[in-house]
């Protein structure tokens, strides 16, 4: 049986890669993909603990995370397309309308 620490190590690897991707990339679509990576890291964690602690709750919460990710995808991509039509760019450091 695979020890639970391996799953946690994989999860933290995905999480850090996702956070680094959110911070360093300029393209807003890649930032969005990195957020999906972070959500998947959390899903691995929840399901690993769900199995090793014999509780189904982790899997239930994973279903809700996938739901929220789907809603976020629909809304986020609509926003990205509107911003692209209005400003002609999807680089996050050039979209500074709400920066003080």
């Amino acid at each position: 049986m695979v020890p639970i620490s391996w799953y946690l190590a994989l999860s933290i690897t995905f999480f850090i890669i996702g956070i680094v991707g959110v911070v360093i990339r300029r393209n807003v679509i890649v930032v969005f993909l990195s957020v999906e990576l972070i959500l998947n890291a959390v899903n691995i964690n929840l399901i690993a603990f769900s199995y090793y602690l014999s509780s189904i709750t982790g899997q239930i919460f994973t279903i809700f995370i996938i739901t929220v990710a789907a809603a976020e995808a629909a809304l986020g991509l609509a926003l990205v397309i509107v911003v692209y039509h209005n400003k002609g760019t999807i680089n996050v450091d050039e979209i500074s309308l709400m920066r003080w």
């Binding site: 695979v2 899903n43 691995i44 899997q59």
Partner: peptide, 10 residues
């Protein structure tokens, strides 16, 4: 990896 953790539906 979810399959390895016996979460087939997920």
């Amino acid at each position: 990896i979810f399959v390895l953790l016996h979460a087939e539906f997920l």
